[in-house]
Design a protein around this nucleic acid. Structure first.
Length: 346
DNA sequence: AAGGCGGGGGG
DNA sequence: CCCCCAGCCTT
């Protein structure tokens, strides 16, 4: 029995039942693939269900506001996925007459759709022979064939895509693609896979050369930078506060937060007192403030560690754009902020 | 070619 | 503490 047949046999026996496997609607397939980019099934599943409930068709998604889509996406991370999701829904509805692109080449033109996602939608929704290469596929192929080329090098990306394209089952590309990814997720796991129950024990190069734990090879790690965030939680007598949309390029674009002052180090109350708040409130002799968290809250992103302090500031008057504190949770915000809102007793 | 972009979970 | 996850975009 060859690689394909063993793999698909394993899949028909062990696969999980997942909602996006019960449909061939390209809108649902696309939605699931965007949600699952760099995201485990367990984490993405509730978001998928929420999205198809709130936006049953691509027209519903196209007609929604970006803010409401980001709110539903809140907590999932990589928020450009949600912004591109909205952009592409509008594009398909308004420019493509609501007809979902149905080939790899046309899917690849969509914003937020790269080689992997175009291949996944083309094969799963339209049965096109297009090989997917995700983190699971890299791992399965590098181990099974004993390939030591770094998976994130230019050569490795080409090499694994090429190999995957020679392996894909020409008669059932949808099943084959999902099978190899599921196999990587459930059996050929990153850490401590149970090779004693693997159907490829007698043919896996990595297993026979005791290289399972060193494959796949991956180049370098991202260096982490440390930042110091001071969030200004204003409170006025009308139970209002300031909450702003992040418009600049970096993290959390288009999400909302309390006014932020970044500092070179963690500030003491004395140092904080010397800051200038004239951007937010009228100059006052005495500013009545307190510190929510004595020790920094350290919020860890992939390549930034955010040492954070929340400063509670009572003021007599706030600018026009202040919003009611009880409406804070209607806005999409980073987990760091939403957890503060949930925990602080306003 | 390299770096930026989240948050959760596992070992 | 580290690495990984149904990757993509920008520079």
């Amino acid at each position: 029995m060859d690689f394909n047949h063993k793999l698909i046999s394993w899949y028909s026996d062990k696969k999980r039942e997942l909602p996006w496997r019960e449909t061939s609607n390209p809108y649902y397939i696309w939605l699931s693939e965007i949600i699952l980019q760099q995201t485990q099934v367990k984490q993405g599943l509730p978001y998928y269900n929420a999205f198809i409930t709130q936006y049953p068709t691509i027209f519903d998604l196209a007609n929604a506001s970006e803010t409401s889509i980001l709110k539903l996406w809140q907590g999932l991370g990589y928020y450009s996925r949600a912004r591109n999701l909205h952009f592409t829904a509008k594009h398909i509805v308004n420019e493509l007459n609501g007809k979902f692109p149905d080939t790899y080449n046309d899917l690849l033109k969509l914003k937020g759709v790269g080689d992997y996602t175009a291949s996944a939608i083309a094969s799963i929704a339209f049965n096109e022979v297009a090989a997917v290469v995700d983190g699971n596929v890299y791992r399965v192929l590098s181990r099974y064939f004993g390939i030591e080329t770094p998976i994130n090098s230019t050569l490795g990306i080409k090499e694994f895509k090429s190999l995957a394209s020679t392996l894909i089952d020409l008669h059932q590309p949808a099943t084959y693609n999902q099978a190899i990814m599921e196999f990587g997720a459930i059996q050929c796991k990153p850490k401590n896979p149970d090779c004693s129950v693997c159907p490829f024990q007698d043919s896996c190069v990595a297993l026979q050369n005791q290289m399972v734990d060193v494959l796949p090879v991956k180049l370098k790690k991202t260096k982490v930078t440390v930042k110091y965030f001071n969030f200004l939680v204003f409170m006025d007598p009308n139970k209002k506060t300031l909450f702003e949309k992040r418009t600049k390029k970096g993290i959390w674009q288009h999400l909302y937060q309390f006014p932020l002052i970044e500092s070179e180090k963690s500030l003491t109350p004395e140092e904080f007192h010397l800051l200038n708040f004239e951007d937010y409130v009228l100059k006052q002799e005495t500013l009545d403030y307190s510190l929510y968290n004595e020790a920094d809250i350290v919020h860890k992103l992939s390549h930034q560690h955010l040492h954070t302090k929340f400063w509670i500031i009572d003021v007599a008057e706030l600018p026009e754009e202040a919003i009611l504190i009880k409406t804070l949770t209607k806005y999409p915000s980073p987990v760091l902020i939403s957890e503060f809102i949930d925990n602080f007793s306003f």
